[in-house]
């Protein structure tokens, strides 16, 4: 009777473990496979990125296109304004140096040309 109970106990134990192990594996496996997939993709990307260096492809176009990366000088800004918006350039020319500086700084900061033209008129009309 004791032996039977012992056997029964031992027979049951592995089943609990098996169920527990299966349950864990069901939840864990997809995540680990996903993580492994992501890792593979990231390492493939890393390897591929090295090829850009060795062949120097991406810099070719930027070198060929000339003045990329140069900050626009005030002269260039004023020349562009004169070229495209001669009217605004006339009023800009009549502004005091401090207002001109302010408008140029706004241009460098990324203000749109319509904003700048409005600002020029505002400053000119003391609004």
């Amino acid at each position: 009777m004791v032996l039977k109970a012992y056997r029964y106990k031992n027979d049951r134990k592995p089943r609990y473990w098996a169920i527990a192990a299966m349950t864990i594996s069901i939840f864990v496996t997809p995540f680990s496979v996903m993580a492994a997939g992501d890792d593979d993709y990231l390492s493939a990307l890393k390897q591929e990125a090295k090829k850009v260096d060795s062949k120097g492809g991406s810099s070719t176009a930027s070198a060929a296109t000339g003045d990329a990366g140069n900050a626009v000088s005030r002269e260039v800004f004023e020349a562009e304004l004169k070229d495209k918006y001669a009217g605004s350039a006339v009023f800009y020319g009549k502004l005091p140096a401090s207002s001109q500086e302010e408008i140029f700084l706004e241009y460098q900061g990324g203000a749109t040309i319509s904003e700048l033209r409005k600002k020029i008129m505002d400053r000119f009309l003391h609004r």
Binding site: A61, A64, T65, G66, A68, G69, N70, A71, Q108
Partner: peptide, 10 residues
């Protein structure tokens, strides 16, 4: 923070 000219290879 810098203005960059975008154009095509000439």
């Amino acid at each position: 923070g810098r203005s960059v000219k975008v154009q095509r290879v000439q």
